[in-house]
Amino acid sequence: MLIFLEACNLDILEVVIDGPFVPTIAGTGDSSIPKPRSDWVSNCKTAKEMWDTLQQMHEGTTDVKRARINTLMHEYELFNMKKKESVNDMQTRFTHIVNNLNALGKVIDNEQQISKVMR
């Protein structure tokens, strides 16, 4: 999201983070801000509100992050290959869990991952 905003305009990230700025809908003269596609931001009045809402929805509060990490760690710990599951599907599922943990700041090193899959 940060890269996208910087690519739109060098100053737009500053405006979004610092606010207040009332964006216009794409197609009404200002094409640098895309039309919102989600109900999450449809009630927001400023770019700052949109940014905060999107950040909250995708990252959540500290408690939400902690709960997500706990849930994903539980999935990781109980991970095993399901019956009639291909190796590719198993690897995709495992990678999804590990990537989500990494995104939340819980890094599992490669040695542990390999060990887990081999078990």
Rank of each mutant, 00 (worst) to 15 (best):
64 V>Q: 12
47 A>H: 03
69 I>R: 15
4 F>V: 08
67 A>Q: 15
72 L>G: 02
12 I>W: 06
20 P>R: 01
40 W>M: 04
76 Y>W: 15
24 T>F: 10
30 D>Y: 09
98 V>L: 04
115 S>Q: 11
31 S>K: 03
40 W>I: 11
99 N>W: 10
53 T>C: 12
16 V>T: 09
15 V>R: 11
37 R>T: 14
64 V>C: 00
45 K>M: 07
16 V>Y: 12
13 L>T: 11
62 T>P: 11
47 A>W: 15
72 L>M: 11
20 P>M: 00
88 N>V: 15
109 D>R: 02
11 D>Y: 08
5 L>T: 04
12 I>D: 06
78 L>T: 11
63 D>S: 10
36 P>W: 00
48 K>F: 14
32 S>G: 01
53 T>A: 14
82 K>T: 05
106 K>V: 05
46 T>I: 06
66 R>D: 05
67 A>E: 13
44 C>W: 00
19 G>P: 05
43 N>C: 04
18 D>A: 07
91 Q>H: 07
8 C>W: 02
53 T>E: 12
115 S>V: 05
45 K>Y: 09
75 E>L: 09
97 I>Q: 09
90 M>Y: 13
76 Y>E: 04
103 A>S: 15
95 T>R: 15
100 N>K: 14
100 N>M: 09
62 T>Y: 11
59 E>S: 11
35 K>D: 05
70 N>V: 07
23 P>N: 00
104 L>Q: 09
108 I>C: 02
50 M>T: 00
48 K>E: 13
36 P>N: 01
31 S>C: 03
5 L>F: 06
96 H>E: 11
100 N>W: 00
21 F>T: 06
54 L>A: 04
115 S>W: 06
84 K>E: 14
